[in-house]
Amino acid sequence: MVADLDPVADELYALPRDEFTAARNTAAKRARQSGDKKLAEQIQALRRPSTAAWLTNLLSREHPDEVRALVDLGDGLRAAQDQLEGEALRRLSQQRHEVVHGLVEQARALARSAGNPASDAVTRELEDTFTAAVNSSAAAEAVAGGRLTSALDPAEAGGLLGSTTPPAARQDRDTGPDREERLRRDLEQARSTAADADAAREKAERERTAAERAANDAAGTLRELRSRIEAAEKAERDTRTRARSAERDVGAADRAAREAQRRVRDLERRLDQH
Protein backbone atom coordinates (compact mmCIF):
# COMPACT_ATOMS: atom_id res chain seq x y z
CA MET A 1 0.00 0.00 0.00
CA VAL A 2 1.50 3.34 -1.00
CA ALA A 3 1.61 6.14 1.53
CA ASP A 4 -0.65 8.40 -0.49
CA LEU A 5 -3.51 5.93 -0.30
CA ASP A 6 -4.01 6.31 3.47
CA PRO A 7 -5.26 9.91 3.53
CA VAL A 8 -7.48 9.26 0.50
CA ALA A 9 -8.97 6.14 2.11
CA ASP A 10 -9.47 7.92 5.43
CA GLU A 11 -11.32 10.71 3.65
CA LEU A 12 -13.51 8.35 1.64
CA TYR A 13 -14.50 6.13 4.57
CA ALA A 14 -15.41 9.22 6.60
CA LEU A 15 -18.04 10.21 4.03
CA PRO A 16 -21.76 9.38 4.19
CA ARG A 17 -22.24 5.94 2.67
CA ASP A 18 -24.27 7.13 -0.32
CA GLU A 19 -21.48 9.56 -1.30
CA PHE A 20 -18.69 6.98 -1.24
CA THR A 21 -18.82 5.59 -4.78
CA ALA A 22 -18.92 8.93 -6.58
CA ALA A 23 -16.15 10.34 -4.38
CA ARG A 24 -13.99 7.23 -4.89
CA ASN A 25 -14.36 7.39 -8.65
CA THR A 26 -13.47 11.08 -8.63
CA ALA A 27 -10.37 10.43 -6.51
CA ALA A 28 -9.26 7.58 -8.77
CA LYS A 29 -9.75 9.76 -11.86
CA ARG A 30 -7.73 12.55 -10.26
CA ALA A 31 -4.89 10.10 -9.48
CA ARG A 32 -4.88 8.83 -13.08
CA GLN A 33 -4.80 12.37 -14.43
CA SER A 34 -1.82 13.11 -12.20
CA GLY A 35 0.01 10.11 -13.68
CA ASP A 36 -0.17 7.83 -10.64
CA LYS A 37 -1.76 4.77 -12.24
CA LYS A 38 -0.98 2.47 -9.31
CA LEU A 39 -2.62 4.78 -6.80
CA ALA A 40 -5.63 5.14 -9.10
CA GLU A 41 -6.02 1.35 -9.22
CA GLN A 42 -5.73 1.08 -5.45
CA ILE A 43 -8.32 3.82 -4.92
CA GLN A 44 -10.69 2.22 -7.44
CA ALA A 45 -10.35 -1.09 -5.58
CA LEU A 46 -11.70 0.44 -2.36
CA ARG A 47 -15.18 -0.93 -1.71
CA ARG A 48 -18.19 0.93 -0.45
CA PRO A 49 -18.93 -0.10 3.14
CA SER A 50 -22.06 -1.97 4.08
CA THR A 51 -24.45 -0.14 6.39
CA ALA A 52 -23.10 -1.91 9.48
CA ALA A 53 -19.49 -1.27 8.42
CA TRP A 54 -20.23 2.39 7.71
CA LEU A 55 -21.79 2.83 11.16
CA THR A 56 -18.80 1.10 12.75
CA ASN A 57 -16.42 3.42 10.88
CA LEU A 58 -18.47 6.43 11.93
CA LEU A 59 -18.43 5.28 15.54
CA SER A 60 -14.66 4.77 15.49
CA ARG A 61 -14.23 8.39 14.42
CA GLU A 62 -16.73 9.95 16.79
CA HIS A 63 -15.97 7.75 19.82
CA PRO A 64 -12.38 6.53 19.29
CA ASP A 65 -11.59 5.97 22.99
CA GLU A 66 -14.56 3.66 23.48
CA VAL A 67 -13.78 1.69 20.34
CA ARG A 68 -10.10 1.38 21.31
CA ALA A 69 -11.22 -0.01 24.67
CA LEU A 70 -12.18 -3.18 22.75
CA VAL A 71 -8.47 -3.90 22.28
CA ASP A 72 -7.74 -3.72 26.00
CA LEU A 73 -10.83 -5.77 26.83
CA GLY A 74 -9.85 -8.49 24.36
CA ASP A 75 -6.28 -8.57 25.70
CA GLY A 76 -7.63 -8.92 29.24
CA LEU A 77 -9.91 -11.78 28.26
CA ARG A 78 -7.14 -13.65 26.49
CA ALA A 79 -4.77 -13.15 29.41
CA ALA A 80 -7.38 -14.43 31.86
CA GLN A 81 -7.97 -17.46 29.62
CA ASP A 82 -4.25 -18.24 29.43
CA GLN A 83 -3.91 -18.00 33.21
CA LEU A 84 -7.17 -19.92 33.81
CA GLU A 85 -8.52 -17.13 35.99
CA GLY A 86 -12.17 -18.13 36.21
CA GLU A 87 -13.38 -15.18 38.24
CA ALA A 88 -11.57 -12.71 35.99
CA LEU A 89 -13.04 -14.44 32.93
CA ARG A 90 -16.57 -14.16 34.29
CA ARG A 91 -16.07 -10.50 35.14
CA LEU A 92 -14.51 -9.65 31.79
CA SER A 93 -17.14 -11.65 29.90
CA GLN A 94 -19.84 -9.60 31.58
CA GLN A 95 -17.89 -6.47 30.73
CA ARG A 96 -17.66 -7.64 27.12
CA HIS A 97 -21.44 -7.96 26.96
CA GLU A 98 -21.88 -4.47 28.40
CA VAL A 99 -19.28 -2.86 26.13
CA VAL A 100 -20.62 -4.53 22.97
CA HIS A 101 -24.20 -3.62 23.88
CA GLY A 102 -23.17 -0.02 24.61
CA LEU A 103 -21.34 0.36 21.30
CA VAL A 104 -24.26 -1.14 19.38
CA GLU A 105 -26.63 1.35 20.99
CA GLN A 106 -24.28 4.22 20.17
CA ALA A 107 -24.08 3.06 16.55
CA ARG A 108 -27.87 2.81 16.36
CA ALA A 109 -28.13 6.34 17.76
CA LEU A 110 -25.77 7.56 15.03
CA ALA A 111 -27.93 5.78 12.44
CA ARG A 112 -31.05 7.52 13.75
CA SER A 113 -29.28 10.88 13.70
CA ALA A 114 -28.33 10.24 10.08
CA GLY A 115 -32.01 9.61 9.26
CA ASN A 116 -31.44 5.93 8.50
CA PRO A 117 -32.42 3.80 11.54
CA ALA A 118 -30.57 0.50 11.79
CA SER A 119 -32.61 -2.57 10.88
CA ASP A 120 -32.57 -5.77 12.94
CA ALA A 121 -30.14 -7.31 10.44
CA VAL A 122 -27.76 -4.34 10.69
CA THR A 123 -28.00 -4.46 14.49
CA ARG A 124 -26.96 -8.13 14.46
CA GLU A 125 -24.04 -7.31 12.17
CA LEU A 126 -22.94 -4.56 14.56
CA GLU A 127 -23.07 -7.01 17.47
CA ASP A 128 -21.02 -9.54 15.48
CA THR A 129 -18.46 -6.90 14.48
CA PHE A 130 -17.88 -5.61 18.01
CA THR A 131 -17.77 -9.16 19.39
CA ALA A 132 -15.16 -10.04 16.75
CA ALA A 133 -13.18 -6.98 17.82
CA VAL A 134 -13.09 -8.35 21.37
CA ASN A 135 -12.13 -11.82 20.20
CA SER A 136 -9.29 -10.75 17.92
CA SER A 137 -6.71 -7.97 18.22
CA ALA A 138 -6.51 -7.80 14.42
CA ALA A 139 -10.28 -7.37 14.19
CA ALA A 140 -10.12 -4.71 16.91
CA GLU A 141 -7.45 -2.82 14.96
CA ALA A 142 -9.56 -3.07 11.79
CA VAL A 143 -12.57 -1.66 13.63
CA ALA A 144 -10.50 1.12 15.20
CA GLY A 145 -8.96 1.91 11.80
CA GLY A 146 -12.33 3.14 10.53
CA ARG A 147 -12.11 1.53 7.08
CA LEU A 148 -14.31 -1.56 7.34
CA THR A 149 -16.23 -2.49 4.21
CA SER A 150 -18.35 -5.27 5.73
CA ALA A 151 -19.33 -6.65 9.11
CA LEU A 152 -16.90 -9.01 10.85
CA ASP A 153 -17.69 -12.58 11.87
CA PRO A 154 -16.76 -13.46 15.48
CA ALA A 155 -16.07 -17.08 14.49
CA GLU A 156 -13.67 -16.07 11.73
CA ALA A 157 -12.03 -13.45 13.92
CA GLY A 158 -10.93 -16.13 16.36
CA GLY A 159 -12.23 -16.89 19.84
CA LEU A 160 -10.74 -16.77 23.32
CA LEU A 161 -10.15 -20.51 23.41
CA GLY A 162 -7.56 -22.56 21.60
CA SER A 163 -4.56 -20.22 21.86
CA THR A 164 -1.32 -22.21 21.99
CA THR A 165 1.05 -19.26 22.40
CA PRO A 166 2.42 -19.04 25.96
CA PRO A 167 1.59 -15.79 27.80
CA ALA A 168 5.23 -14.79 28.10
CA ALA A 169 5.87 -15.35 24.41
CA ARG A 170 2.81 -13.32 23.46
CA GLN A 171 3.86 -10.53 25.80
CA ASP A 172 7.32 -10.42 24.17
CA ARG A 173 5.76 -10.43 20.73
CA ASP A 174 3.26 -7.71 21.57
CA THR A 175 5.74 -5.07 22.65
CA GLY A 176 7.65 -2.48 20.68
CA PRO A 177 8.11 -2.29 16.89
CA ASP A 178 7.43 -6.02 16.42
CA ARG A 179 3.92 -5.62 17.80
CA GLU A 180 3.25 -2.67 15.53
CA GLU A 181 4.50 -4.54 12.47
CA ARG A 182 2.45 -7.63 13.37
CA LEU A 183 -0.64 -5.53 13.90
CA ARG A 184 -0.11 -3.84 10.55
CA ARG A 185 0.10 -7.24 8.84
CA ASP A 186 -2.96 -8.45 10.73
CA LEU A 187 -4.80 -5.28 9.79
CA GLU A 188 -4.01 -5.74 6.11
CA GLN A 189 -5.17 -9.35 6.30
CA ALA A 190 -8.36 -8.31 8.08
CA ARG A 191 -9.01 -5.68 5.43
CA SER A 192 -8.43 -8.22 2.67
CA THR A 193 -10.81 -10.66 4.37
CA ALA A 194 -13.37 -7.90 4.84
CA ALA A 195 -13.04 -6.91 1.17
CA ASP A 196 -13.66 -10.51 0.07
CA ALA A 197 -16.63 -10.73 2.38
CA ASP A 198 -17.95 -7.45 0.99
CA ALA A 199 -17.65 -8.77 -2.56
CA ALA A 200 -19.56 -11.90 -1.54
CA ARG A 201 -22.18 -9.74 0.15
CA GLU A 202 -22.61 -7.59 -2.96
CA LYS A 203 -23.01 -10.71 -5.10
CA ALA A 204 -25.58 -12.07 -2.66
CA GLU A 205 -27.41 -8.73 -2.73
CA ARG A 206 -27.52 -8.81 -6.53
CA GLU A 207 -28.86 -12.36 -6.47
CA ARG A 208 -31.41 -11.36 -3.84
CA THR A 209 -32.51 -8.38 -5.95
CA ALA A 210 -32.89 -10.61 -9.00
CA ALA A 211 -34.82 -13.19 -6.97
CA GLU A 212 -37.10 -10.51 -5.53
CA ARG A 213 -37.74 -9.12 -9.01
CA ALA A 214 -38.60 -12.60 -10.30
CA ALA A 215 -40.84 -13.17 -7.27
CA ASN A 216 -42.62 -9.87 -7.91
CA ASP A 217 -43.12 -10.79 -11.57
CA ALA A 218 -44.49 -14.19 -10.57
CA ALA A 219 -46.79 -12.55 -8.03
CA GLY A 220 -48.07 -10.18 -10.72
CA THR A 221 -48.72 -13.09 -13.06
CA LEU A 222 -50.47 -14.97 -10.25
CA ARG A 223 -52.69 -11.96 -9.48
CA GLU A 224 -53.61 -11.67 -13.15
CA LEU A 225 -54.42 -15.39 -13.36
CA ARG A 226 -56.50 -15.22 -10.19
CA SER A 227 -58.39 -12.23 -11.60
CA ARG A 228 -59.07 -14.13 -14.82
CA ILE A 229 -60.14 -17.22 -12.87
CA GLU A 230 -62.51 -15.13 -10.74
CA ALA A 231 -63.97 -13.54 -13.88
CA ALA A 232 -64.41 -16.98 -15.49
CA GLU A 233 -66.04 -18.34 -12.33
CA LYS A 234 -68.43 -15.38 -12.24
CA ALA A 235 -69.25 -15.88 -15.94
CA GLU A 236 -69.94 -19.56 -15.25
CA ARG A 237 -72.26 -18.68 -12.34
CA ASP A 238 -74.12 -16.12 -14.47
CA THR A 239 -74.45 -18.55 -17.36
CA ARG A 240 -75.78 -21.31 -15.11
CA THR A 241 -78.28 -18.85 -13.61
CA ARG A 242 -79.50 -17.96 -17.11
CA ALA A 243 -79.64 -21.65 -18.04
CA ARG A 244 -81.83 -22.44 -15.02
CA SER A 245 -84.09 -19.49 -15.87
CA ALA A 246 -84.31 -20.66 -19.49
CA GLU A 247 -85.11 -24.19 -18.29
CA ARG A 248 -87.98 -22.84 -16.21
CA ASP A 249 -89.20 -20.88 -19.25
CA VAL A 250 -89.04 -24.05 -21.36
CA GLY A 251 -91.12 -25.90 -18.75
CA ALA A 252 -93.70 -23.12 -18.67
CA ALA A 253 -93.86 -22.97 -22.48
CA ASP A 254 -94.23 -26.75 -22.67
CA ARG A 255 -97.13 -26.71 -20.22
CA ALA A 256 -98.77 -23.87 -22.16
CA ALA A 257 -98.34 -25.78 -25.44
CA ARG A 258 -99.90 -28.96 -23.98
CA GLU A 259 -102.79 -26.94 -22.58
CA ALA A 260 -103.33 -25.31 -25.98
CA GLN A 261 -103.33 -28.72 -27.68
CA ARG A 262 -105.92 -30.03 -25.24
CA ARG A 263 -108.05 -26.97 -25.93
CA VAL A 264 -107.78 -27.58 -29.68
CA ARG A 265 -108.82 -31.24 -29.32
CA ASP A 266 -111.71 -30.32 -27.07
CA LEU A 267 -113.03 -27.77 -29.54
CA GLU A 268 -112.63 -30.20 -32.45
CA ARG A 269 -114.65 -32.82 -30.53
CA ARG A 270 -117.44 -30.39 -29.83
CA LEU A 271 -117.60 -29.36 -33.50
CA ASP A 272 -117.83 -33.01 -34.59
CA GLN A 273 -120.79 -33.56 -32.25
CA HIS A 274 -122.80 -30.86 -34.05
Rank of each mutant, 00 (worst) to 15 (best):
R223W: 11
R240E: 13
R170S: 15
R61G: 13
A22S: 12
V264A: 09
V8Q: 02
A199G: 14
A111N: 01
N25A: 11
S136K: 00
E87N: 15
V2T: 07
E66Y: 06
R173H: 03
M1Q: 00
Q95N: 10
V122N: 04
R255V: 06
D75P: 00
K37S: 15
A107T: 01
L110Y: 08
L225T: 11
K203Y: 05
R248T: 14
S60I: 04
A69I: 00
L58T: 08
A155T: 03
R179Q: 11
P177W: 03
Q171H: 15
A69E: 09
K29G: 09
E181M: 08
W54T: 00
A109Q: 11
L59R: 07
G115E: 10
D75R: 04
V99G: 03
A14D: 12
R208W: 13
P154M: 11
A9G: 08
R237K: 10
R255K: 13
L55P: 05
T209Q: 14
R242Q: 15
S34Q: 08
L222S: 13
V8N: 05
E224R: 11
D266I: 03
P154A: 06
S34E: 13
Q94N: 12
R201W: 11
G159T: 01
D178I: 11
H274N: 10
T51Q: 12
D75Q: 04
L103Y: 05
E259G: 12
A118I: 02
L126S: 07
G162F: 09
N25M: 03
L84F: 14
R30A: 09
A31Q: 05
R223D: 12
N216M: 08
A199Q: 15
A210C: 06
Q261T: 08
G115Y: 06
A211H: 12
